[in-house]
Design a binder for these strands. Structure first.
Lengths: 192, 192
DNA sequence: TGAGCCTTGGGACAAATGTCCTTTTTAGTA
DNA sequence: TACTAAAAAGGACATTTGTCCCAAGGCTCA
Protein backbone atom coordinates (compact mmCIF):
# COMPACT_ATOMS: atom_id res chain seq x y z
CA UNK A 1 0.00 0.00 0.00
CA UNK A 2 2.93 2.31 0.66
CA UNK A 3 4.63 2.49 -2.72
CA UNK A 4 8.39 2.73 -3.19
CA UNK A 5 10.79 2.72 -6.12
CA UNK A 6 14.29 2.07 -4.88
CA UNK A 7 15.74 1.55 -8.37
CA UNK A 8 15.19 5.08 -9.53
CA UNK A 9 16.27 6.56 -6.21
CA UNK A 10 19.52 4.65 -6.37
CA UNK A 11 20.16 5.68 -9.97
CA UNK A 12 19.57 9.35 -9.21
CA UNK A 13 21.68 9.47 -6.08
CA UNK A 14 24.53 7.71 -7.87
CA UNK A 15 24.40 9.40 -11.27
CA UNK A 16 22.29 12.54 -11.21
CA UNK A 17 22.52 13.94 -7.70
CA UNK A 18 23.98 17.22 -8.87
CA UNK A 19 21.32 17.67 -11.55
CA UNK A 20 18.46 17.68 -9.06
CA UNK A 21 17.55 20.29 -6.45
CA UNK A 22 16.81 18.99 -2.93
CA UNK A 23 14.04 20.34 -0.72
CA UNK A 24 12.60 19.64 2.71
CA UNK A 25 9.07 19.86 4.07
CA UNK A 26 7.42 19.41 7.43
CA UNK A 27 4.60 17.07 8.30
CA UNK A 28 1.30 18.53 7.16
CA UNK A 29 2.73 20.71 4.38
CA UNK A 30 1.12 20.61 0.95
CA UNK A 31 3.80 19.97 -1.66
CA UNK A 32 1.51 20.09 -4.65
CA UNK A 33 -2.08 21.31 -4.95
CA UNK A 34 -4.79 19.95 -7.17
CA UNK A 35 -5.74 21.96 -10.27
CA UNK A 36 -2.55 24.01 -10.27
CA UNK A 37 0.19 24.28 -12.84
CA UNK A 38 3.03 21.89 -12.16
CA UNK A 39 6.55 22.91 -13.16
CA UNK A 40 8.71 20.25 -11.53
CA UNK A 41 8.87 16.54 -11.14
CA UNK A 42 9.65 15.39 -7.61
CA UNK A 43 11.21 12.20 -6.30
CA UNK A 44 11.06 11.27 -2.64
CA UNK A 45 14.43 10.80 -0.92
CA UNK A 46 12.90 10.00 2.46
CA UNK A 47 9.59 10.41 4.22
CA UNK A 48 5.99 9.69 3.32
CA UNK A 49 3.25 11.58 1.48
CA UNK A 50 -0.36 10.99 0.64
CA UNK A 51 -1.46 11.54 -2.93
CA UNK A 52 -5.14 12.38 -2.91
CA UNK A 53 -7.84 13.82 -5.09
CA UNK A 54 -10.58 16.10 -3.76
CA UNK A 55 -13.91 15.51 -5.44
CA UNK A 56 -16.57 18.14 -6.10
CA UNK A 57 -18.80 16.66 -3.38
CA UNK A 58 -16.19 17.52 -0.73
CA UNK A 59 -14.80 14.04 -0.29
CA UNK A 60 -11.12 13.16 -0.62
CA UNK A 61 -9.95 9.95 -2.19
CA UNK A 62 -6.40 8.79 -1.49
CA UNK A 63 -4.72 7.40 -4.58
CA UNK A 64 -1.56 6.22 -2.94
CA UNK A 65 0.89 6.64 -0.13
CA UNK A 66 4.31 7.40 -1.65
CA UNK A 67 7.57 6.54 0.07
CA UNK A 68 11.22 6.53 -0.98
CA UNK A 69 11.83 6.75 -4.71
CA UNK A 70 8.29 7.48 -5.80
CA UNK A 71 7.77 10.19 -8.39
CA UNK A 72 5.06 12.80 -8.68
CA UNK A 73 4.50 15.74 -11.01
CA UNK A 74 5.57 13.67 -14.03
CA UNK A 75 2.08 12.81 -15.29
CA UNK A 76 1.21 16.48 -15.72
CA UNK A 77 4.36 16.92 -17.81
CA UNK A 78 3.26 14.20 -20.22
CA UNK A 79 -0.41 15.12 -20.42
CA UNK A 80 0.14 18.91 -20.41
CA UNK A 81 -2.56 19.42 -17.81
CA UNK A 82 -2.85 20.92 -14.35
CA UNK A 83 -2.42 18.60 -11.38
CA UNK A 84 -5.26 16.18 -10.77
CA UNK A 85 -4.16 15.30 -7.23
CA UNK A 86 -2.69 16.98 -4.19
CA UNK A 87 0.40 15.80 -2.33
CA UNK A 88 0.72 16.27 1.43
CA UNK A 89 3.65 15.31 3.66
CA UNK A 90 2.68 12.82 6.38
CA UNK A 91 6.17 12.90 7.87
CA UNK A 92 9.24 15.08 7.59
CA UNK A 93 10.03 14.90 3.90
CA UNK A 94 13.13 15.18 1.72
CA UNK A 95 12.70 15.31 -2.04
CA UNK A 96 14.66 15.73 -5.26
CA UNK A 97 13.17 18.17 -7.74
CA UNK A 98 13.78 18.88 -11.41
CA UNK A 99 12.05 21.47 -13.65
CA UNK A 100 9.97 19.96 -16.42
CA UNK A 101 12.26 21.47 -19.06
CA UNK A 102 15.28 19.67 -17.64
CA UNK A 103 13.22 16.53 -17.20
CA UNK A 104 12.44 16.59 -20.93
CA UNK A 105 16.13 16.91 -21.77
CA UNK A 106 17.08 14.12 -19.42
CA UNK A 107 14.49 11.80 -20.96
CA UNK A 108 16.05 12.38 -24.38
CA UNK A 109 19.69 12.27 -23.38
CA UNK A 110 19.74 9.48 -20.80
CA UNK A 111 18.25 6.20 -22.08
CA UNK A 112 18.62 4.51 -18.72
CA UNK A 113 16.70 7.28 -16.99
CA UNK A 114 14.11 7.14 -19.77
CA UNK A 115 13.68 3.44 -19.10
CA UNK A 116 13.38 3.91 -15.35
CA UNK A 117 10.62 6.46 -15.89
CA UNK A 118 8.79 4.16 -18.31
CA UNK A 119 9.09 1.40 -15.77
CA UNK A 120 7.76 3.61 -13.01
CA UNK A 121 4.74 4.58 -15.11
CA UNK A 122 4.04 0.96 -15.98
CA UNK A 123 4.25 -0.05 -12.33
CA UNK A 124 1.79 2.63 -11.35
CA UNK A 125 -0.69 1.35 -13.92
CA UNK A 126 -0.23 -2.26 -12.91
CA UNK A 127 -0.62 -1.50 -9.24
CA UNK A 128 -3.64 0.72 -9.72
CA UNK A 129 -5.30 -1.91 -11.89
CA UNK A 130 -4.81 -4.64 -9.33
CA UNK A 131 -5.85 -2.49 -6.42
CA UNK A 132 -9.00 -1.22 -8.10
CA UNK A 133 -9.95 -4.73 -9.22
CA UNK A 134 -9.48 -6.09 -5.74
CA UNK A 135 -11.45 -3.33 -4.08
CA UNK A 136 -14.16 -3.59 -6.71
CA UNK A 137 -14.53 -7.34 -6.38
CA UNK A 138 -14.20 -7.94 -2.65
CA UNK A 139 -15.85 -6.81 0.54
CA UNK A 140 -14.07 -3.91 2.23
CA UNK A 141 -13.22 -6.24 5.08
CA UNK A 142 -11.05 -8.30 2.72
CA UNK A 143 -9.24 -5.23 1.38
CA UNK A 144 -8.50 -4.12 4.89
CA UNK A 145 -7.27 -7.55 5.98
CA UNK A 146 -4.93 -7.64 3.02
CA UNK A 147 -3.49 -4.23 3.87
CA UNK A 148 -3.10 -5.01 7.56
CA UNK A 149 -1.29 -8.17 6.59
CA UNK A 150 1.22 -6.24 4.54
CA UNK A 151 1.57 -3.43 7.07
CA UNK A 152 0.70 -4.60 10.59
CA UNK A 153 1.70 -1.27 12.18
CA UNK A 154 -0.48 0.62 9.69
CA UNK A 155 -2.25 2.83 12.20
CA UNK A 156 0.98 3.98 13.76
CA UNK A 157 1.79 5.54 10.37
CA UNK A 158 -1.54 6.57 8.90
CA UNK A 159 -4.66 8.03 10.52
CA UNK A 160 -7.96 6.17 10.45
CA UNK A 161 -9.53 8.96 8.44
CA UNK A 162 -6.82 8.67 5.77
CA UNK A 163 -7.29 4.92 5.71
CA UNK A 164 -11.04 5.37 5.22
CA UNK A 165 -10.34 7.79 2.38
CA UNK A 166 -8.04 5.24 0.81
CA UNK A 167 -10.69 2.55 0.97
CA UNK A 168 -13.45 4.86 -0.22
CA UNK A 169 -15.58 4.36 2.91
CA UNK A 170 -16.50 6.49 5.90
CA UNK A 171 -14.62 6.53 9.17
CA UNK A 172 -17.69 5.03 10.81
CA UNK A 173 -17.58 2.03 8.50
CA UNK A 174 -13.86 1.56 9.01
CA UNK A 175 -14.37 1.43 12.77
CA UNK A 176 -17.12 -1.12 12.39
CA UNK A 177 -14.98 -3.35 10.21
CA UNK A 178 -12.03 -3.08 12.58
CA UNK A 179 -14.29 -4.13 15.44
CA UNK A 180 -15.47 -7.16 13.45
CA UNK A 181 -11.90 -8.10 12.60
CA UNK A 182 -10.73 -7.87 16.19
CA UNK A 183 -13.63 -10.12 17.14
CA UNK A 184 -12.56 -12.70 14.58
CA UNK A 185 -8.93 -12.50 15.63
CA UNK A 186 -10.03 -13.10 19.19
CA UNK A 187 -11.96 -16.18 18.14
CA UNK A 188 -9.03 -17.49 16.14
CA UNK A 189 -6.68 -17.08 19.07
CA UNK A 190 -9.05 -18.82 21.45
CA UNK A 191 -9.72 -21.68 19.07
CA UNK A 192 -6.13 -22.14 17.92
CA UNK B 1 -15.44 5.26 -20.54
CA UNK B 2 -14.44 3.86 -23.91
CA UNK B 3 -10.82 4.87 -24.23
CA UNK B 4 -9.18 5.87 -27.49
CA UNK B 5 -5.81 7.21 -28.57
CA UNK B 6 -6.05 8.59 -32.06
CA UNK B 7 -2.61 10.23 -31.99
CA UNK B 8 -0.67 7.01 -31.77
CA UNK B 9 -2.91 5.26 -34.29
CA UNK B 10 -2.34 8.05 -36.77
CA UNK B 11 1.41 8.01 -36.23
CA UNK B 12 1.64 4.28 -36.75
CA UNK B 13 -0.51 4.13 -39.85
CA UNK B 14 1.45 6.99 -41.40
CA UNK B 15 5.00 6.08 -40.37
CA UNK B 16 5.22 2.51 -39.12
CA UNK B 17 2.53 0.56 -40.91
CA UNK B 18 5.03 -1.81 -42.48
CA UNK B 19 6.77 -2.47 -39.14
CA UNK B 20 3.65 -3.86 -37.48
CA UNK B 21 1.78 -7.08 -38.18
CA UNK B 22 -1.99 -6.83 -38.56
CA UNK B 23 -4.45 -9.37 -37.15
CA UNK B 24 -8.19 -9.86 -36.99
CA UNK B 25 -10.44 -11.38 -34.34
CA UNK B 26 -14.11 -12.15 -34.02
CA UNK B 27 -16.46 -10.99 -31.30
CA UNK B 28 -15.98 -13.11 -28.20
CA UNK B 29 -12.39 -14.13 -28.89
CA UNK B 30 -9.82 -13.80 -26.13
CA UNK B 31 -6.82 -11.86 -27.46
CA UNK B 32 -4.77 -12.03 -24.29
CA UNK B 33 -5.23 -14.19 -21.19
CA UNK B 34 -4.46 -13.27 -17.63
CA UNK B 35 -1.34 -14.79 -16.03
CA UNK B 36 0.23 -15.75 -19.34
CA UNK B 37 3.48 -14.66 -20.92
CA UNK B 38 3.02 -11.71 -23.24
CA UNK B 39 5.28 -11.42 -26.26
CA UNK B 40 3.69 -8.64 -28.28
CA UNK B 41 2.28 -5.20 -27.82
CA UNK B 42 -1.03 -4.63 -29.60
CA UNK B 43 -2.68 -1.46 -30.84
CA UNK B 44 -6.32 -1.40 -31.88
CA UNK B 45 -7.00 -0.32 -35.46
CA UNK B 46 -10.75 -0.72 -35.17
CA UNK B 47 -13.23 -2.46 -32.92
CA UNK B 48 -13.72 -2.67 -29.19
CA UNK B 49 -12.33 -4.87 -26.41
CA UNK B 50 -12.84 -5.21 -22.69
CA UNK B 51 -9.77 -5.31 -20.50
CA UNK B 52 -10.68 -7.20 -17.33
CA UNK B 53 -9.11 -8.90 -14.38
CA UNK B 54 -10.47 -12.13 -12.89
CA UNK B 55 -10.15 -12.22 -9.12
CA UNK B 56 -9.58 -15.32 -7.01
CA UNK B 57 -13.16 -15.17 -5.71
CA UNK B 58 -14.51 -15.75 -9.21
CA UNK B 59 -15.53 -12.16 -9.94
CA UNK B 60 -14.35 -10.20 -12.96
CA UNK B 61 -13.52 -6.53 -12.77
CA UNK B 62 -13.40 -4.52 -15.99
CA UNK B 63 -10.51 -2.09 -16.08
CA UNK B 64 -11.39 -0.40 -19.31
CA UNK B 65 -13.06 -0.62 -22.65
CA UNK B 66 -10.43 -0.01 -25.33
CA UNK B 67 -11.24 1.39 -28.76
CA UNK B 68 -9.19 2.72 -31.66
CA UNK B 69 -5.55 3.46 -30.87
CA UNK B 70 -5.43 1.96 -27.41
CA UNK B 71 -2.44 -0.19 -26.53
CA UNK B 72 -2.22 -3.38 -24.52
CA UNK B 73 0.59 -5.78 -23.75
CA UNK B 74 3.02 -2.92 -23.17
CA UNK B 75 2.85 -2.90 -19.36
CA UNK B 76 4.07 -6.47 -19.19
CA UNK B 77 7.05 -5.53 -21.33
CA UNK B 78 8.09 -2.81 -18.88
CA UNK B 79 7.43 -4.73 -15.67
CA UNK B 80 8.71 -8.09 -16.95
CA UNK B 81 5.69 -9.90 -15.58
CA UNK B 82 2.92 -12.11 -16.92
CA UNK B 83 -0.33 -10.45 -17.92
CA UNK B 84 -2.48 -9.14 -15.09
CA UNK B 85 -5.60 -8.74 -17.23
CA UNK B 86 -7.41 -10.50 -20.04
CA UNK B 87 -8.50 -8.85 -23.28
CA UNK B 88 -11.65 -9.98 -25.07
CA UNK B 89 -13.09 -8.67 -28.34
CA UNK B 90 -16.57 -7.20 -27.97
CA UNK B 91 -16.84 -6.53 -31.71
CA UNK B 92 -15.00 -7.60 -34.83
CA UNK B 93 -11.47 -6.44 -34.13
CA UNK B 94 -8.47 -5.33 -36.19
CA UNK B 95 -5.15 -4.80 -34.42
CA UNK B 96 -1.52 -3.94 -35.07
CA UNK B 97 0.99 -6.16 -33.32
CA UNK B 98 4.70 -5.88 -32.64
CA UNK B 99 6.98 -8.35 -30.79
CA UNK B 100 8.41 -6.98 -27.55
CA UNK B 101 11.93 -7.18 -28.94
CA UNK B 102 11.04 -4.89 -31.83
CA UNK B 103 9.07 -2.67 -29.48
CA UNK B 104 12.24 -2.17 -27.41
CA UNK B 105 14.21 -1.20 -30.51
CA UNK B 106 11.54 1.21 -31.66
CA UNK B 107 11.45 2.91 -28.26
CA UNK B 108 15.19 3.54 -28.51
CA UNK B 109 15.37 4.51 -32.16
CA UNK B 110 12.22 6.59 -32.60
CA UNK B 111 11.94 9.48 -30.11
CA UNK B 112 8.52 10.46 -31.36
CA UNK B 113 7.19 6.94 -30.82
CA UNK B 114 8.86 6.89 -27.42
CA UNK B 115 7.04 10.07 -26.51
CA UNK B 116 3.70 8.77 -27.74
CA UNK B 117 4.10 5.69 -25.56
CA UNK B 118 5.05 7.79 -22.53
CA UNK B 119 2.01 9.93 -23.17
CA UNK B 120 -0.22 6.89 -23.45
CA UNK B 121 1.05 5.52 -20.13
CA UNK B 122 0.54 8.87 -18.43
CA UNK B 123 -3.00 9.13 -19.77
CA UNK B 124 -3.83 5.69 -18.47
CA UNK B 125 -2.64 6.67 -15.00
CA UNK B 126 -4.50 9.97 -15.05
CA UNK B 127 -7.72 8.38 -16.21
CA UNK B 128 -7.52 5.51 -13.76
CA UNK B 129 -6.86 7.91 -10.92
CA UNK B 130 -9.84 10.07 -11.74
CA UNK B 131 -12.15 7.17 -12.32
CA UNK B 132 -11.21 5.39 -9.11
CA UNK B 133 -11.52 8.61 -7.12
CA UNK B 134 -14.94 9.30 -8.56
CA UNK B 135 -16.21 5.79 -7.96
CA UNK B 136 -14.74 5.77 -4.47
CA UNK B 137 -16.27 9.10 -3.50
CA UNK B 138 -19.71 8.99 -5.07
CA UNK B 139 -22.79 6.80 -5.00
CA UNK B 140 -22.89 4.27 -7.82
CA UNK B 141 -25.90 6.11 -9.19
CA UNK B 142 -23.71 9.15 -9.84
CA UNK B 143 -21.05 7.10 -11.62
CA UNK B 144 -23.66 5.57 -13.83
CA UNK B 145 -25.29 8.90 -14.65
CA UNK B 146 -21.92 10.31 -15.64
CA UNK B 147 -21.24 7.38 -17.95
CA UNK B 148 -24.70 7.46 -19.52
CA UNK B 149 -24.20 11.14 -20.14
CA UNK B 150 -21.00 10.51 -22.05
CA UNK B 151 -22.36 7.50 -23.89
CA UNK B 152 -26.16 7.58 -24.17
CA UNK B 153 -26.30 4.46 -26.35
CA UNK B 154 -24.16 2.56 -23.84
CA UNK B 155 -26.30 -0.55 -23.62
CA UNK B 156 -26.37 -0.99 -27.37
CA UNK B 157 -22.61 -1.48 -27.17
CA UNK B 158 -21.99 -3.14 -23.82
CA UNK B 159 -23.97 -5.78 -21.90
CA UNK B 160 -25.46 -4.99 -18.51
CA UNK B 161 -23.30 -7.66 -16.91
CA UNK B 162 -20.14 -6.03 -18.30
CA UNK B 163 -21.34 -2.67 -17.07
CA UNK B 164 -21.91 -4.10 -13.61
CA UNK B 165 -18.42 -5.57 -13.67
CA UNK B 166 -17.04 -2.18 -14.65
CA UNK B 167 -18.80 -0.49 -11.76
CA UNK B 168 -17.89 -3.21 -9.28
CA UNK B 169 -21.50 -4.02 -8.44
CA UNK B 170 -23.85 -6.91 -9.17
CA UNK B 171 -26.22 -7.05 -12.10
CA UNK B 172 -29.11 -6.91 -9.62
CA UNK B 173 -27.87 -3.61 -8.23
CA UNK B 174 -27.34 -2.17 -11.68
CA UNK B 175 -30.94 -2.96 -12.61
CA UNK B 176 -32.18 -1.33 -9.43
CA UNK B 177 -30.22 1.84 -10.09
CA UNK B 178 -31.39 1.98 -13.70
CA UNK B 179 -34.97 1.72 -12.52
CA UNK B 180 -34.44 4.58 -10.09
CA UNK B 181 -32.86 6.69 -12.80
CA UNK B 182 -35.68 6.09 -15.26
CA UNK B 183 -38.12 7.13 -12.54
CA UNK B 184 -36.21 10.37 -11.96
CA UNK B 185 -35.97 11.07 -15.68
CA UNK B 186 -39.72 10.67 -15.89
CA UNK B 187 -40.23 13.15 -13.08
CA UNK B 188 -37.85 15.63 -14.69
CA UNK B 189 -39.68 15.44 -17.97
CA UNK B 190 -43.09 15.88 -16.36
CA UNK B 191 -41.93 18.75 -14.19
CA UNK B 192 -39.92 20.53 -16.88
C1' DT C 1 -5.92 25.64 34.24
C1' DG C 2 -9.33 25.50 30.85
C1' DA C 3 -11.15 26.38 26.12
C1' DG C 4 -10.96 24.60 21.64
C1' DC C 5 -9.76 21.22 18.29
C1' DC C 6 -8.62 16.80 16.48
C1' DT C 7 -8.84 11.82 16.72
C1' DT C 8 -11.07 7.88 18.04
C1' DG C 9 -15.12 5.04 19.18
C1' DG C 10 -19.70 3.75 18.84
C1' DG C 11 -25.43 3.92 19.09
C1' DA C 12 -29.52 4.18 16.16
C1' DC C 13 -31.76 4.34 12.11
C1' DA C 14 -31.95 4.95 6.90
C1' DA C 15 -30.24 3.77 2.47
C1' DA C 16 -27.63 0.94 -0.63
C1' DT C 17 -26.03 -3.46 -2.08
C1' DG C 18 -25.65 -8.54 -2.14
C1' DT C 19 -27.69 -13.10 -2.37
C1' DC C 20 -30.90 -16.27 -3.97
C1' DC C 21 -34.45 -17.30 -6.93
C1' DT C 22 -38.02 -16.92 -10.59
C1' DT C 23 -39.93 -15.10 -14.79
C1' DT C 24 -39.76 -12.80 -19.18
C1' DT C 25 -37.46 -11.39 -23.36
C1' DT C 26 -34.26 -11.89 -26.92
C1' DA C 27 -31.24 -14.07 -30.21
C1' DG C 28 -29.51 -17.81 -32.42
C1' DT C 29 -30.11 -22.34 -34.42
C1' DA C 30 -31.69 -27.03 -35.52
C1' DT D 1 -41.45 -23.06 -36.50
C1' DA D 2 -39.88 -24.81 -32.17
C1' DC D 3 -36.13 -25.40 -29.06
C1' DT D 4 -32.43 -23.67 -26.40
C1' DA D 5 -29.35 -20.63 -24.12
C1' DA D 6 -28.21 -16.20 -22.86
C1' DA D 7 -29.58 -11.63 -21.34
C1' DA D 8 -32.61 -8.85 -18.83
C1' DA D 9 -35.83 -7.76 -15.08
C1' DG D 10 -37.24 -7.85 -10.59
C1' DG D 11 -39.28 -9.94 -5.67
C1' DA D 12 -37.82 -10.94 -0.93
C1' DC D 13 -34.74 -10.92 2.62
C1' DA D 14 -29.96 -10.42 4.75
C1' DT D 15 -25.90 -7.76 5.06
C1' DT D 16 -23.20 -3.73 4.52
C1' DT D 17 -22.55 1.04 4.49
C1' DG D 18 -23.93 5.89 5.22
C1' DT D 19 -25.76 9.56 8.00
C1' DC D 20 -26.40 11.90 12.09
C1' DC D 21 -25.28 12.07 16.74
C1' DC D 22 -22.88 12.08 21.04
C1' DA D 23 -18.89 11.26 24.12
C1' DA D 24 -14.19 10.29 25.78
C1' DG D 25 -9.25 11.16 25.50
C1' DG D 26 -5.23 13.75 24.10
C1' DC D 27 -3.09 17.86 22.46
C1' DT D 28 -2.02 22.83 21.89
C1' DC D 29 -2.12 27.41 23.29
C1' DA D 30 -3.74 31.59 25.54
Amino acid sequence: MIRENKNILKYISQNLSEVFITKEFNKGEIILSQNKNVNHISIIQSGLVKCYRSEANGKDFIQEFFGAGEIFGEIEFFTHTVSFCSIEALQELHIYQLPHKDFANLLNSDPQFNQLIMNSLAQKISYKAQRHAFQGSHATENSLMKILNETPDLFNIISKQDMANYLGITLRSLNRILLQLSGKEGLTNEEG
